[in-house]
Amino acid sequence: MRLALPQPFEDLGHTADVGVRVRGATAEEALARLVLAFATLASGGAGVAAEREERVAVQGGPGHAGSAVALLRELLYRLATEGLVPAACEVLRVDAAGAEAIVAFGRRDPVRHAEGADVKAVTWHVARLEREDGGWVAQAVFDV
């Protein structure tokens, strides 16, 4: 399922950094929402115009959560070095071995996205991608 910005997420209320939690009917949907929560933090909630689409595949683990962290780490590197922000995302596969997604990227605009956070790292602390209440829950704490 392809999801585009904006998507809902919960703020975990982390004191020093920013933690987010999302839900989905499947692991893939939850992870796509987590990717877009990361994009919302980076863009400050302003729209992101997609410029190009790319298949992003990463090796992951331990567990589904480790694969979620691996995908976010890759996307954060693209943000830090190329200024690329996900505008839409379809997670094709996520399991304990890795994740694969089609990501539509836009560019971080210093004016339009001036209120975006400087997301510097994806931490492993309380990272989750697991079944809960008949669906899937995903969460991550980002260093900002």
Partner: peptide, 19 residues
Amino acid sequence: RGLGYQVCDEFIAEIAARG
């Protein structure tokens, strides 16, 4: 800056995989 972040990020991932 970004250099230190990337160093930490990569080693946590490597150690997590080889723990």
